[in-house]
Design a protein around this nucleic acid. Structure first.
Lengths: 138, 138
DNA sequence: TGTAATTGCTCTAGTCACTAGAGCTTCAAG
DNA sequence: CTTGAAGCTCTAGTGACTAGAGCAATTACA
């Protein structure tokens, strides 16, 4: 039996976040001690580790809920789980592409400033005038 | 003189977002028509375009506030503006690095599933067991 | 000039995924 | 048996908007 603090240390999920997940129905309400404190089993530790891992990978809480539902039905076809993971992959790739465009733009902005005062600062001018951008973004 | 809708169309910032920026003090409260509708000048259009551009580049509203304050003092040294842009560049690069790690992990997860049911689905197993991960993330 | 469609106004509340704080109780170690 | 850490519930705050209700003003057209 683990206290909420044990669970937090073992999974890296903060204590208030665990309680929040319980409220959201992502983890079930666990047993309580005589003094009304939460007591978790190993199964619940594993579920929380699952959630943590999926959150680290950028899955939305709703996706995680679906994945948990799926994992409770091991006899069903797993196409849905694959689909969630693939969509997540696509979204991550899109974010990378977008951020790379920003990186290029910011690189130009942040390294080209040789003005001494704000009046001729390239950072400020570049932000004021989209026409100074090399290409489209945003 | 532009209505809030004109401003929105010209800058790509949505109408409620413009009002929100006014509330947050990012743009000044503009003149009003006799019927109490907002009327903007070209200067305000430019400021909003500046904000839009900076938001597109991922600057936080607080950073934008600083940049606007700076641009109001063109005689000051521009080191601070440079610093904000450089920090933003660093943070974008960190995000890219993190997302690339996720991409690799998700790629492995999403493409390796040849199980037919959830019971032996690699997606679910990989999320349950961090030990299946090729390397650290999150 | 009339009227209808569009646009605008304020205000409150909701989003997502937490995070912080107040004020209290329980637990574990010495 | 005491003390200090950890736990409890509850409310409210974060960032950057977004949505909706219920009105008022403006604009286009007949």
């Amino acid at each position: 039996m683990f206290s909420i603090g044990d669970l937090s240390r073992r999974t890296g999920v903060k204590v208030p976040t665990i309680r929040y997940y319980e409220q959201m129905g992502l983890v079930a309400a666990p047993e309580r001690s005589e003094g009304n404190q939460r007591r978790y089993s190993r199964q619940e530790l594993e579920r929380l580790a699952f959630i943590r891992h999926a959150r680290d990978l950028g899955f939305a809480v709703e996706d995680i809920r679906s994945l948990i539902d799926l994992s409770g039905h091991p006899e069903q076809p797993c196409g849905h789980a694959d689909k969630i993971a693939e969509e997540q992959l696509i979204s991550v790739r899109e974010k990378i592409a977008q951020l790379k465009r920003l990186e290029a733009e910011l690189e130009r902005i942040a390294t080209c400033c040789d003005g001494k005062t704000v009046g001729d600062c390239y950072v400020i001018r570049a932000l004021s005038d989209h026409a100074l951008c090399a290409d489209e973004h945003g």
